[in-house]
């Protein structure tokens, strides 16, 4: 049987079980709630209350309203991805791979003669499908909310250009996919969900931010941070949406140019898949 046929079968199987897994829906729901809260709700409350300091320092009501219009959806869609979106996708990736060891489902699968590489690639592809689904649902929700606000506020509806939508989808995919697959790699390394989720979250939310702080004092640390996943993801999004004044959006930075950041993020995607395959092929399954 060809590897492509085996991989296709495993992808269908993994999609079937991911669809029914509450963890997937909870992760997606958490992301959507956070995305709406920080993308629209707080801005809208600030806009309607007339308190410019509520959501975004120094912005006027007109600027706040413009941020909630349909043509600004690509930016709103992207801004939470380096921090919340990435962390949530990493958790999901770690759960997908790590629980296979914790529940013994990898063992059950391989004991029935299912080949390791196609099964693992199938799992990665199904995780990728979840990432794509998350992007589509998020964009649709953001667009829906912005249309409601535009209508409510009697504003002209100007849709985002196809180019900006494509760019936002491409960058968003790279960032979420990278974190999901790094989580998958961590789950494979740790052969369980708990340690991989914990380590991944500490890294994504704490360690990289601390290193960026230290990097201002030590040149070699600064050089190192330029190739780290969080910095690269933040720089990729920052190159599209802009960093803004003041503290800006958490996780969105301008440390490295956008094209360099995109290449680094893509390299992490490839690296995570290859490393996961190598680990699963080589190691004992107990």
């Amino acid at each position: 049987m060809s590897t492509i046929v085996s991989t296709t079968r495993s992808t269908r199987a993994e999609l079937m079980r991911l669809r029914a897994w509450p963890a997937v829906w909870i992760t997606l729901g958490a992301w959507l709630v956070l995305s709406l809260l920080f993308g629209y709700l707080f801005t809208y409350l600030s806009y309607t209350s007339g308190d410019p300091g509520f959501a975004d320092e120094g912005t006027t009501q007109a600027q706040q309203l413009a941020r909630m219009m349909p043509d600004a959806v690509p930016n709103v869609f992207l801004q939470g991805m380096p921090m919340f979106g990435g962390a949530l996708m990493m958790v999901l990736g770690a759960l997908v791979a790590g629980n296979g060891y914790g529940w013994g489902t990898w063992k059950t699968l391989f004991a029935q003669g299912v080949r390791r590489t196609p099964a693992l690639v199938g799992s990665v592809l199904s995780l990728t499908a979840v990432v794509v689904g998350t992007l589509v649902v998020t964009f649709a929700l953001d667009l829906g909310v912005s249309l409601v606000i535009a209508t409510t506020e009697s504003q002209d509806v100007v849709m985002p250009s196809a180019g900006s939508v494509g760019e936002a989808f491409g960058a968003g995919f790279l960032v979420l996919e990278m974190w999901a697959l790094l989580g998958f790699l961590l789950g494979t390394l740790a052969r369980g969900p708990a340690l991989s989720v914990g380590l991944g979250l500490v890294w994504a939310l704490v360690v990289e931010n601390l290193l960026r702080g230290v990097g201002q004092l030590l040149g070699w640390v600064e050089t190192l941070t330029e190739v780290l996943p969080g910095t690269s993801a933040g720089s990729l999004i920052g190159a599209i949406v802009g960093v803004g004044d003041g503290d800006g959006t958490p996780g969105v930075v301008d440390t490295v140019p956008g094209d360099q950041a995109a290449l680094t993020v893509a390299a992490y995607v490839v690296l995570a898949v290859l490393a996961s395959i190598a680990l699963v092929r080589r190691r004992d399954v107990t």
Partner: peptide, 13 residues
């Protein structure tokens, strides 16, 4: 080959 090795491992949900 089909096998049951050291207890069954399945998705609990």
């Amino acid at each position: 080959v089909g096998a049951l090795i050291e207890g069954p491992g399945f998705f609990p949900y």
